[in-house]
């Protein structure tokens, strides 16, 4: 029983970081209807920025944290301007966006290999590794921090979407981009804000992920799992992305705890196919209508 509880807690903590990554995929999908595969690269760079701000620049942890989030925020907007805006202006089919995103992600991964090198890097110890004991269950300080930071970020995001003018504009644009533009919403600005938000959370998630594991150029492949979580919850839906991520995190830790950690990734991809076959719009996704 206590082992199950332990796995649930671990699952919640990793699931909450997946959620931070998954909202980036979902926000972009809700407005532009394509899967932004470059997001994995942005998360990876977030982990690297955090690492260098902490070690080479020597910033204190909270400042390094915010600084790397701001850097990836700018980076995500640059990617949008460079790789997607020209396609958007030409009204290219969504497939071109996906290919462009794939190209960007290859570019980001390999520019890190070419400049920094493919070696694994470990974050300096920011939080003490001794876990907190609660009865028979032990909670890692890092796991707790991951959960709390993610929860705060997601709460801020919900507040931003529900209670600010820009948030309302994002909702309207997600509902119908053409009509929103006719109503005087600057949809170009909305798209920039959406990428900036996604990039900001990607930076935070990247640093948390790097602290928990290690930093290396292929982190983007692992972050694909947060994409699975976004599909699981329903692409384009923020609550869906969060619930999907937490479920995926829990399923993963339970599989590696009771079966074998080798099957962990396999379960994630099998889950992805199963969701697409039986319920393509995910748990809470919006119903896409064919506008042909």
């Amino acid at each position: 029983m206590s082992q199950l509880l332990q796995q649930l807690i671990n699952g919640l903590s990793i699931g909450s970081v997946y959620a931070l990554m998954a909202v980036g995929y979902s926000l972009v999908y809700s407005i532009m209807n394509f899967s932004n595969f470059a997001h994995g690269g942005v998360i990876m760079l977030g982990a690297y920025f955090g690492y260098y701000y902490l070690t080479s620049v020597g910033l204190p942890f909270p400042i390094a944290f915010i600084a790397s989030a701001l850097t990836t925020c700018v980076l995500a907007v640059i990617i949008e301007r460079g790789a997607y805006k020209p396609l958007r202006e030409r009204k290219a089919p969504f497939l071109y966006f996906i290919i462009s995103a794939m190209g960007t992600s290859i570019f980001l991964e390999n520019i890190v290999i070419a400049t920094i090198g493919p070696t694994f890097r470990t974050y300096p110890e920011v939080l003490s590794r001794t876990p907190i004991q609660l009865g028979s269950v032990s909670i890692g300080r890092l796991d707790l921090a991951m959960f709390i930071i993610s929860a705060i970020c997601l709460a801020l995001l919900v507040f931003f979407i529900d209670h600010t003018k820009m948030g309302k504009a994002i909702q309207a644009t997600a509902y119908n981009i053409k009509a929103s533009a006719l109503m005087g919403i600057n949809t170009d600005l909305v798209i920039i804000v959406v990428f900036a938000l996604g990039g900001f959370f990607a930076g935070i998630a990247g640093v948390l992920f790097g602290m928990k594991y290690t930093v290396y150029p292929q982190i983007g492949v692992i972050t694909n799992k947060s994409f699975i979580a976004a599909v699981f919850g329903g692409l384009g839906s923020l609550p869906g992305a969060v619930i999907g991520s937490i479920l995926l995190g829990v399923i993963e830790t339970i599989t590696s705890g009771y079966l074998s950690s080798q099957y962990r990734d396999l379960i994630a991809f099998v889950l992805l196919i199963a969701v697409l076959v039986f319920r393509p719009r995910g748990l809470m996704g919006k119903v896409t209508e064919d506008k042909a």
Binding site: P86, L87, A92, S100, A114
Partner: peptide
């Protein structure tokens, strides 16, 4: 080391300029 960087960049440029 740089060939895949060029490769990724080329893909984006092809998509933008001559899809």
């Amino acid at each position: 080391n740089w060939r895949l960087v060029i490769y990724g960049l080329a893909v984006v440029i092809i998509m933008i300029t001559r899809p």
